[in-house]
Amino acid sequence: MWAGFGHVQPDRTVEARSPARETAQELLRVYLPFGVPLSSLDRIRYRGQLFEIDGEPMHWPHGGLRHTRVHVWRAMH
Rank of each mutant, 00 (worst) to 15 (best):
D11P: 05
R47K: 02
I44V: 13
S39A: 09
T23P: 12
P33I: 03
L50T: 01
P61L: 03
P33V: 01
Q25G: 10
G35V: 02
Q49N: 06
Y46F: 03
D54Y: 03
Y46M: 00
S40F: 10
G55F: 01
R45V: 12
R12E: 05
M58C: 02
L27F: 12
R21T: 14
D11E: 05
G55M: 01
R17M: 04
W60Y: 15
P57M: 01
L32K: 03
D54A: 07
T13W: 07
L32P: 09
R47L: 02
H62G: 11
I53Q: 00
E52C: 03
Q49H: 02
S39N: 01
L32H: 06
G35T: 04
G35C: 04
T13R: 12
G55L: 00
T13I: 14
P19F: 09
R43W: 08
H59E: 01
D54R: 07
T13G: 04
T23H: 15
A24T: 06
L27R: 13
P19G: 08
E15F: 03
I53W: 00
S18E: 02
P57K: 00
Q49A: 12
P19E: 12
S18G: 14
L50Q: 13
E56N: 12
E26I: 14
F34H: 11
V14S: 08
W60N: 07
R17N: 13
R21D: 04
P33K: 06
G48V: 02
V14W: 07
R45M: 05
S39F: 03
D42L: 08
P61M: 01
Q9A: 09
T23F: 09
R29C: 11
Q49F: 15
Q9W: 08
I53N: 00
S40C: 04
Q9S: 07
Q25V: 13
E52F: 06
L38Y: 01
L32I: 05
R45D: 13
V30N: 04
M58A: 05
Q9C: 15
H62L: 10
E22A: 15
G35D: 01
F34S: 01
S40R: 14
W60H: 08
L32C: 07
D42M: 08
E56A: 09
G35P: 00
Y31V: 13
P19K: 15
E26Y: 08
D11K: 09
R29P: 13
S39E: 07
A20M: 12
V30P: 10
R45A: 13
A24F: 01
G35E: 04
V14R: 14
E56I: 10
S40Y: 11
P57A: 04
P33Q: 02
W60F: 09
P33E: 05
R17Y: 14
R12C: 04
H59N: 07
L50K: 03
Q25R: 12
P57D: 02
Q49E: 14
R21Y: 12
L32Y: 08
F34K: 06
F51I: 01
P33G: 04
V36D: 08
G48P: 03
R21K: 13
R43A: 12
R29A: 15
A16M: 07
V30A: 02
P19N: 08
A24G: 02
A24E: 03
H62S: 13
L32N: 06
R12P: 05
E52D: 11
M58G: 02
P33A: 06
S40A: 15
L28D: 05
E22M: 11
L27I: 15
S40N: 10
F51S: 02
A16R: 11
D11M: 14
I53A: 00
